[in-house]
Amino acid sequence: MTPDPSDVQALFARHYFYFAMLATLGALQIAVSIGGYPGLWVLPHRLGTRMAGAILIIAGAALFFMLPLWVDGPWAAGSVEADSSTRQWGRADWGDLGAARNVNDIDGGLSGTGQATWFPLAALIAFCVSITAGAANRRLFPARMARMTPISPGTDASEGIDDEDGIALLRRRSYPGALKTSWRRFRRELPADAMTLLAQADRWSVAFQVWHWVLRRKSR
């Protein structure tokens, strides 16, 4: 009997979510180790964090593509062929693994929209895990984490950009502290920032054109 597409879709969504969660955590770890934000590192060591990131991505992919060996799905041994509408429910064998996940979305595979829904959720959880790990590292290894400030804040003054908010603060603080400072500054500076950004906007900008039209009307 061919599987019900809604059962297949629920299974694919769950497995894709595991894959996306591990992979986004891995990608985040590699990125923050490159950027130098210890407040989001899972390990109190730059190279270790980067290696952990790579391992997480590989583990996520391996888990996703090997789960058919242990979990029943539309990949029963012997039924895995290119045509995904004739699959049987069951566990795959090693020879079927390459094609097991090739299921058309009309037969229950996860569509692009489905992936676009699960990916941000996975990324959010990965970010929360990183925040927690970063805070734990600061608590458990305070001396080591204090030495992990690779770029001192404010070094971008030459670029005309103050580095004292946003994820840049994660070089010296854990996420809750960075959030508190950043949010306070955002609220304080929003009106001035909005006006500056509007004044500096490209001449293509609709908002810029409307703003200048209003200014011209006022000056008449």
Binding site: G26, A27, L28, A31, Q115, T155, D156, E159
Partner: peptide
């Protein structure tokens, strides 16, 4: 998607 996600956090300086 991971490339875009990672790139968001990978900048070494503010600029």
């Amino acid at each position: 998607s991971l490339a875009m996600f990672g790139m968001w956090f990978a900048g070494r300086s503010s600029g």
